[in-house]
């Protein structure tokens, strides 16, 4: 029992620590989780970590939370998953609670207002930079469907103001249909051989 409690405590502190000090979301936190759980604690095999990463990145929601659920479950079952999720979610929950109190108090302040106005341009640039990087990768695939989806989704969201959830659902369906057509082609290819 004592040993078990130690595992939970260790899972919680690991998740809490990683979440509290990792800036930049899932793609940064996963290598750190690997270092902690595979290399240091040796609770998870290297291969399994790769599987967990693949599943975490394929699921909706924050990649860090997804990875935390899978790792917690793998090490200590459902309770382990709950413990790691709590550890991952608490640091941003506490930080943002404090910040939002300050925000409400100081948003009207001239200096704060000026700095935040200056930051608007910066955050727009950061988003534009990410969009340019991913967008270029999509175009590089030279896949017409992907390019059409990209342009169409932008048009639908920005100009037609269509609810983004519908856009995601439609594009997901296109992806599923396309996958099924490809599977059929592969099967036909196999049959004719």
């Amino acid at each position: 029992m004592n040993h078990k409690n130690n595992t939970y405590i260790k899972l919680f502190t690991s998740a809490f620590y990683l979440s509290a000090f990792t800036f930049g979301g899932g793609y940064v936190i996963i290598p750190l989780m690997k270092k902690k759980l595979v290399d240091d604690l040796q609770w998870i095999e290297e291969d399994e970590m790769l599987n967990i990463t693949a599943i975490a990145q394929s699921s909706p929601g924050a990649v860090a939370v997804n990875a935390a659920i899978l790792l917690g479950y793998r090490v200590a079952g459902v309770l382990g998953a709950l413990v790691t999720v709590l550890g991952t979610v608490l640091p941003p929950l506490i930080t943002l609670s404090v910040i939002s109190i300050f925000y409400t108090t100081f948003r009207g302040n001239t200096v704060v207002n000026a700095v935040l106005k200056g930051m608007q341009a910066g955050v727009a640039a950061v988003i534009a930079d990410v969009v340019l990087n991913i967008g270029r990768n999509v175009l590089k695939q030279k896949d017409i469907v992907s390019s059409v989806i990209m342009v169409g989704a932008f048009f639908a969201a920005f100009f037609l103001k269509i609810n983004v959830i519908y856009i995601i659902l439609v594009c997901g369906c296109i992806g599923a249909v396309r996958f099924l057509i490809r599977m059929e082609e592969v099967q036909k290819g196999d049959d004719s051989q």
Partner: peptide, 27 residues
């Protein structure tokens, strides 16, 4: 996870476009 990855392959360009749209409203 091939089905999921198939769906994701069409979602990725859509997600970029949606981020671009949100980014443009911030710009």
């Amino acid at each position: 996870l091939t089905v999921v990855q198939g769906v994701l392959s069409c979602l990725r360009p859509a997600i970029v476009a949606l981020i671009a749209s949100a980014g443009l409203s911030i710009f």
